[in-house]
Design a protein around this nucleic acid. Structure first.
Length: 607
RNA sequence: GGUUCCAUAGCUCAACUGGAUAGAGCAACUGCCUUCUAAGCAGUAGGUUCCAGGUUCGAGUCCUGGUGGAAUCACCA
């Protein structure tokens, strides 16, 4: 009795193949061992590179069922699959590992399927909405290295979720009010002498940052003075005239004092102009902006609702608290005794506002891990309030970026400024490109654009290749590298493929994929790698982790370069393979381009 | 002190969620440009996966206890 399983190749190639194999294995258990093993229970893993094959089935756990050693179990299943599944060409067994080698014609079908799909790796709409909040800067200082990680992550996650089939809305919640803004405003008022970004020749955000620093310096002087006159340090911090003035300014702002609001608007607009420029350079964008000056009063109705529902309780001083002891947390203040809101009050309100604006299935907050506790509390409260969307709230908590010298401290001037850093990367890319590729025949403008693409690719890839959850080290020397596991390496691979494409056109190569070829190892491995792409994207989406895409794209580029070095594409002794190899190259190029786009990185046609 | 997270080659990071001999890059060393872009390729060397137990066919991965580091525990945001 024979069971022939034909593998049907659709867009989710990898799934199709492994499903067929699993069905075959299930059948094998039935026929050989009279045992029902459900397809869902069967796990396949990729074969390690040092062994023959592409799919591996581990037989250790099944000795009891087969009544045979792991090796014997593997052999009999392998035998069965070769006989009954047409895609399985051969097998080998090493200890308890059954490695399956699929036929060349199957891999050629796979390549054809990839080739036929312009949007390979991109899923059709799944009908779900997801909001991604990222960036969320304060308007009192320019963006720095930490913001770069945040922005690149947020943007990339949004791209990845979009490719996973979600309807994505990117939002930025700007912290444009509060005591820190007043500090910059006050210092400007006192020491600014009417300076403007134009007169100072500075970007607006940098100018405001200058006054934020100025405030801190003057404030420190006052504290020292007070301490010298006998105050305790603690008292001095509270009583220094500057801080009192800043606090008064905040009150004036809240009561809508005209002059204060006018100054606030003027300075914030300078900052926004500066930010726009930086975002533009970074290549990130938003679909919607929220400003805390509009949302900071929200959330009080939710406090009332919580009181009614008995989720919150009042203390003697009239302050309102959430009791989260049942959830393993503490009590948390949600409204001050004087009725004013705290951070979490407005976040509750903003959460509700976001849902009203865009009824999401998921809402992602890209915020550093120093706020883990805050979001834990926020999400638990929203769930307690019975919000249907509560389960979809997710804090993408990323680790801090350290410098070799340690932690970045804005007050100690050890921050790496975002604008400066990106400019450095462009300069390095320029220098390096001029040394490397003499004559690409670029106009000055094109050359500049190339430096931008390469420099930005380097810094983005550097920050995205690491698992977002992990704290990472930013070594300026290393980040500026353009060889090895870097963005430019992948961009270079793409440019190489473009060169192949151009050459193929010159030669008039027919790129139809001949289904009867026999494949070299390097060719097969490349196709196997290509077949993994859609699943990697889905996994990156499920884990909110661009690093999975970064790692994949690097592996693919590396595999391609091995192929490129090992085999000649326009090989005169092998003319029947020209079309296939060009098609293979172009599909690798296509996937590299798509993958890099998911990271927010462009790829050049030449470099 | 409580809670949470982290510890893998000299350095920076992986390891498909419990599978084979733990992999890449950088740094070091050896080869490869008259051949499709050498920002590349091939190779050498580098490991007690922080320590001690446990769970099982099998542990870098899971559980317990240590050690070291980070974050947080505000009527700041």
């Amino acid at each position: 009795m024979m069971f022939i399983f034909a593998v049907k190749i659709s867009d989710s190639i990898k799934m199709d193949i492994s499903l067929s194999l699993k069905q075959g294995i299930s059948k094998a258990f039935q026929e050989l061992f009279s045992h029902e093993l459900a397809v869902e229970e069967i796990a396949l893993q990729p074969t390690r590179k040092d062994f023959e094959g592409s799919h591996t089935f581990v037989t250790f756990p099944y000795g009891r069922i087969s009544k045979k050693s792991p090796e014997e179990t593997g052999k009999s299943i392998g035998e069965f699959l070769v006989a009954n599944v047409d895609a399985v060409a051969a097998y080998n067994v090493v200890k308890g590992f059954l490695n399956l080698e699929l036929s060349d014609s199957l891999w050629l079908q796979v390549l054809s399927a990839v080739n036929a799909n312009d949007k390979y790796g991109v899923q059709p709409s799944n009908g779900e909405k997801v909001m991604v909040e990222y960036s969320s800067p304060n308007t009192n200082k320019p963006l720095h290295l930490g913001h770069l990680r945040n922005n690149f992550l947020g943007y990339s996650v949004a791209q990845i979720l979009d490719a996973c089939g979600y309807d994505v809305l990117k939002v930025n919640l700007v912290n444009d009010r509060g005591i820190h803004i007043c500090k910059s405003m006050l210092a400007y008022q006192k020491f600014g002498e009417g300076e403007t970004p134009e007169s100072a020749g500075m970007k607006g955000d940098h100018l405001i940052g200058k006054y934020y620093v100025k405030f801190d310096q003057e404030y420190k002087k006052e504290i020292e003075g007070l301490v010298a006159n006998g105050s305790s340090e603690e008292d001095a911090k509270k009583q220094a005239p500057l801080i009192l003035e800043a606090q008064q300014m905040l009150k004036n702002w809240e009561t809508g004092d005209e002059d204060t609001v006018a100054l606030w608007e003027k300075m914030n607009n300078w900052v926004y102009e500066g930010f726009d420029q930086t975002y533009n350079t970074m290549g990130v964008s938003f679909d919607k902006m929220y400003k805390e000056s509009n949302t900071y009063l929200l959330g009080k109705d939710l406090v009332d609702e919580g009181l009614e529902k008995g989720i919150f309780f009042k203390k003697d001083d009239n302050s309102v608290w959430a009791n989260l002891t049942e959830e393993g947390l503490d009590e948390k203040l949600v409204l001050r005794g004087d009725g004013t809101s705290v951070y979490i009050t407005q976040d509750m309100g903003t959460c509700e506002l976001k849902y009203a604006d865009f009824p999401f299935d998921k809402s992602v907050y890209v915020v550093g891990n120093e706020q883990d506790y805050h979001f834990d509390v926020l999400f638990k409260i929203m769930k307690k309030l019975g919000r249907s969307y509560g389960e979809g709230l997710y804090h993408l908590s990323y680790g801090m970026v350290d410098l070799p010298s340690g932690k970045m401290k804005s007050r100690e001037g050890t921050v790496v400024d975002a604008d400066d850093l990106m400019q450095d990367m462009f300069d390095t890319a320029e220098k390096h490109t001029q040394e490397k590729s003499e004559n690409l025949g670029f106009s000055e403008e094109e050359a500049k654009e190339l430096y931008r693409i390469i420099g930005l690719g380097a810094i983005k890839y550097f920050l995205l290749k690491v698992d977002p959850r992990k704290r990472m080290l930013f070594d300026p020397e290393e980040s500026i590298e353009l060889t090895g596991n870097t963005g430019p390496f992948i961009q270079y691979s793409h440019a190489r493929i473009s060169a192949i494409s151009r050459r193929a056109k010159e030669l008039g190569v027919n790129t139809a994929i001949d289904q009867n070829l026999s494949l070299e190892d390097a060719e097969k491995r490349l196709i196997v790698e290509l077949s993994n792409f859609p699943q990697k994207v889905l996994q990156a989406g499920a884990d909110y982790s661009p690093s999975i895409v970064a790692q994949y794209v690097y592996d693919l580029a590396k595999e391609y370069n091995r192929f490129y070095g090992e085999l000649k594409i326009f090989d005169d002794d092998n003319k029947d393979k020209w079309g296939f190899r060009v098609a293979l190259s172009e599909n690798v190029g296509k996937v590299l381009k798509t993958g890099m786009k998911l990271l927010g990185i462009d790829v050049p046609e030449r470099m």
